[in-house]
C-alpha cells in the first residue's frame, strides 16, 4: 500500500524545489501528481535511493542524459560534462541523496524517522521500473535543466 497522504508527499516536493533552487533553478514547474502502476518507464538516467526505518521503499529520480549532464555540471561548479562518466554519475547520486535526505528529515519532524541506503544509478535505454507494491506516486517536474520525474514507492513499516 503506497504512501499517498499529502503531508507525507509534500516534503519530497519541497525538497526537490529547494535543491533545484540552490542549483540556480528558481522556476521549477510541478506537473500533475499521479499514480502510476508498475512497471513504469524510466528514462536514460535513473537514480534510486532506498528508504529504511519508519518508512520503507524507494525514491527514484528519472531524467534524460542531457538533463542529467546539466544537473551534474551545475553541481560540479560548472565543469563541462561531455561524457556521462563516473564523476557525472556521482553528482547525480548526490543530487538524489540530498533531495531524499532533506525530505526524510522533514518527515522526521512528523514522527517518521528514516535512514537512507546509498544511491544506485541505472543508465540505459528503455528501462522499466517495478515495485513490489505495484504502484508509484509520480511527481513530474519541469526544470531549467529539463524534465525530471520523481517516482515514490514508500509504505509505512509495520510497527
Amino acid at each position: 500500500m503506497i504512501l499517498m497522504r499529502a503531508e507525507l508527499i509534500n516534503p519530497f516536493l519541497g525538497a526537490s524545489f529547494k535543491v533545484l533552487k540552490s542549483l540556480g533553478n528558481e522556476h521549477v514547474k510541478k506537473g500533475e501528481l499521479g499514480l502510476a502502476s508498475s512497471p513504469v518507464k524510466g528514462d536514460e538516467v535513473n537514480a534510486t535511493v532506498g528508504v529504511t526505518g519508519d518508512l520503507l521503499g524507494q525514491v527514484i529520480f528519472c531524467m534524460s542524459q542531457q538533463t542529467a549532464s546539466q544537473v551534474a555540471s551545475t553541481m560540479l561548479l560548472g565543469l563541462p560534462i561531455t561524457t556521462f562518466d563516473e564523476l557525472a554519475k556521482s553528482a547525480i547520486c548526490e543530487f538524489s541523496n540530498i533531495v531524499t535526505g532533506n525530505a526524510v528529515t522533514e518527515l522526521g519532524d512528523k514522527g517518521f524517522f528514516c535512514n537512507l541506503t546509498p544511491p544506485t544509478l541505472f543508465v540505459g535505454k528503455d528501462v522499466l521500473l517495478s515495485t513490489k507494491d505495484l504502484g508509484f506516486l509520480v511527481i513530474p517536474l519541469e526544470t531549467g535543466f529539463g524534465d525530471i520525474k520523481v517516482y515514490i514507492a514508500l509504505r509505512e513499516a509495520d510497527k
Binding site: L76, L77, L79, L87
Partner: peptide
C-alpha cells in the same frame, strides 16, 4: 578558490579541470 577558478573556466584546459576536481573534490 574553486569558485574563482570555475568562474573563469575558459582560462583552463577542461581535461585538466576535470582531473583537478577528481583530486581536490568539491
Amino acid at each position: 578558490a574553486l569558485q574563482i577558478i570555475f568562474q573563469d573556466k575558459e582560462k583552463y584546459d577542461p581535461h585538466i579541470l576535470k582531473a583537478f576536481i577528481s583530486v581536490m573534490a568539491i
